[in-house]
Nucleic acid binder design. Structure first.
Length: 415
DNA sequence: TCTGGGGTCCTAGGACCC
DNA sequence: TCTGGGGTCCTAGGACCC
C-alpha cells in the first residue's frame, strides 16, 4: 500500500500559518520575480483565478476582488516543508519526499482501518504545523495520487481517500477527468478524448498494449497502475535525477559580465549541492543565458562544457564558470535569464580519472560547507564571488516576513 | 516603464564520423 | 515494385509536473 500526503495550496496555506488576518481571505502566491500566479488558496479558487497566468495581466482583477497577493517566500516554505515532512516521516519507515509539499509513504503491511490512519496523519500535521493536507491511499503510486485527488477535490471524502478494492477505484476514477490522472497532461488528455474516453475510469479500461502503441510505454504503465499493477517501483519513484538544472530569471535585466558571472556562480553552488545530495558528479555542464523570448530579437547564448574529471565540488564548478563566462557573455544583450544544467551525470564513487589532470575536488571542504549550511540554513556559507553583486536579485514586492528563519522576523505576541 | 516560473525527462532531427 | 548504413553527440522543443 502507498500513501500520498500533499498539502492544500501549500504556498498559500504557508502564508496563512503566521498571519491570522488573511486566513479567511482569498490568497494567491506569485512565482519568482512576481511573474505568474503559482498558488491559489481554496477561497481564491472560488473566484476562478487561473493558475500560472501572468500576474501583470490580472493584477487589476485581483485588486477588485480584494485578493491578498504574496511573493514567493521560499525561506518560509522550505522551513515549513521540513517540519511537515518530519511529521509525515513518523507514519512510515519508508518515505519519499516527492516535492516541496508532497511525500509518498510505503507500507509493507495491511491496516484494518486505513481511514482512521489517514485521519490521524491529517490531524497530527494540522496540530503540529497548521498546514492542511490531503491523504490518499492506493495499491500503486498512481492510485495513491488518484486517491489524494479525491481526498482534496471530490465531495464526501474530507481529506482522506482509499483505493484498495476495484470498487473503490471505480467510484473515484469515474469522477476524475483524464487530465486529473498523474502523467496525463493537456495534450495527451485531448488525444485520449478523441478516442472517446471521458474519464479516468475509461482510461483504466483500455488495453495497456494498445495504449503503448497509441502513445508510449509511459501511458501503458499508467493504465496498468490504475488497475492496481505496480509499475513505478518504489526505487523508480525515488530514483536519482538524470539531469539537474538551476535557472533563474533576473529581477532586472543584466548587461554586465560581472553580474552575469555572479549569478552563474550562484547556480554553480546550487548545482553542486544538489549533486552531492544524491551522490552524483557532473561530467557535462550546460551554461546558458538569454534575453526574453518576447524581445524583438531573441538571443540565446549557451556553451556545453565537459569537465576533464567529473566533479561535485561547487568551487570547481564555479571556477569553470568564471573561465568560460566570456563564451556566454555578449555586450549589449539585455539578459533576462541564465542558468546551468548538469546534463551528464556520474556516480561519485565511480569517477573516471584523467591521466594528466589533477583532481581538484576537495570533499572535506564540501562536507564542512554542507554541514554549516545544513546546521545554520542554506546561505550561511556561500561562494564569495556570487555575492560581489546582487543587483540582479529577484523582484519580490509582496514578500511576507521570514517568520521562522530570521531573528528579526519572528512573530511577536503582544498581550 | 515594464512585466511572462522552474525542474525533469524524452525524442526528433541535424551534423558529423567511420 | 521499391529500395540506399549505423552510431554518437548535440540542440531544440515538447510534454509533464508542481
Amino acid at each position: 500500500m502507498y500513501a500520498l500526503v500533499d498539502a492544500v495550496a501549500f504556498y498559500a496555506s504557508a502564508e496563512k500559518v503566521f498571519d491570522p488576518s488573511i486566513r479567511h481571505k482569498p490568497v494567491v502566491v506569485l512565482t519568482n520575480n512576481d511573474g505568474c500566479i503559482c498558488a491559489v488558496c481554496p477561497i481564491a479558487r472560488k473566484l476562478n483565478i487561473p493558475k500560472f497566468e501572468a500576474f501583470f495581466k490580472i493584477k487589476n482583477d485581483l485588486k477588485q476582488h480584494n485578493v491578498v497577493v504574496r511573493s514567493s517566500n521560499y525561506e518560509l516554505y522550505a522551513d515549513l516543508s521540513d517540519r511537515m515532512m518530519n511529521v509525515i516521516s513518523r507514519f512510515s519507515d519508508e518515505q519519499h519526499v516527492y516535492s516541496i509539499d508532497e511525500a509518498f509513504l510505503k507500507f509493507n503491511h495491511d491496516f484494518n482501518d486505513w481511514q482512521q490512519y489517514g485521519e490521524t496523519i491529517r490531524r497530527t500535521i494540522w496540530r503540529e504545523t497548521k498546514l492542511p493536507v490531503g491523504v490518499g491511499f492506493g495499491t500503486t503510486p498512481t492510485l495513491a495520487k488518484a486517491a489524494n485527488h479525491a481526498a482534496k477535490k471530490l465531495t464526501g471524502f474530507n481529506g482522506v481517500a482509499i483505493i484498495k478494492t476495484p470498487e473503490q477505484a471505480k467510484l473515484i476514477l469515474k469522477q476524475m477527468q483524464l487530465t486529473d490522472v498523474w502523467g496525463i497532461g493537456a495534450k495527451l488528455g485531448k488525444r485520449l478524448a478523441l478516442l472517446g474516453l471521458k474519464n479516468a475510469y475509461d482510461l483504466a479500461k483500455q488495453d495497456p498494449k494498445k495504449m503503448r502503441k497509441f502513445h508510449s510505454i509511459v501511458l501503458e504503465n499508467t493504465v496498468k497502475e490504475l488497475n492496481g499493477i505496480t509499475c513505478l517501483s518504489w526505487d523508480d519513484v525515488r530514483e536519482d535525477k538524470k539531469e539537474i538544472f538551476s535557472t533563474r530569471s533576473f529581477g532586472q535585466r543584466v548587461t554586465d559580465l560581472f553580474s552575469l558571472n555572479a549569478a552563474l556562480v550562484c547556480h554553480a553552488d546550487i548545482i553542486g549541492r544538489k549533486l552531492r545530495q544524491q551522490g552524483s558528479t557532473v561530467k557535462k555542464l550546460l551554461i546558458f543565458a538569454h534575453n526574453s523570448q518576447h524581445d524583438v530579437a531573441y538571443i540565446k547564448r549557451s556553451y556545453l562544457y565537459e569537465f576533464p574529471v567529473a566533479t561535485s565540488d561547487s568551487l570547481v564548478i564555479a571556477n569553470a564558470i568564471s573561465r568560460l563566462i566570456h563564451k556566454i557573455y555578449q555586450p549589449q544583450v539585455q539578459f533576462y535569464k541564465c542558468g546551468l544544467g548538469a546534463v551528464e551525470l556520474g556516480k561519485e564513487n565511480a569517477t573516471q580519472l584523467a591521466l594528466f589532470e589533477p583532481i581538484k575536488d576537495n570533499p572535506q571542504l564540501m562536507q564542512c560547507y554542507d554541514h554549516i549550511n545544513k546546521k545554520y540554513g542554506v546561505g550561511s556559507a556561500f561562494i564569495a564571488s556570487s555575492h560581489l553583486t546582487q543587483n540582479w536579485s529577484m523582484k519580490r514586492h509582496y514578500l511576507s516576513p521570514q517568520y521562522t528563519t530570521k531573528w528579526s522576523d519572528i512573530p511577536k505576541i503582544i498581550c
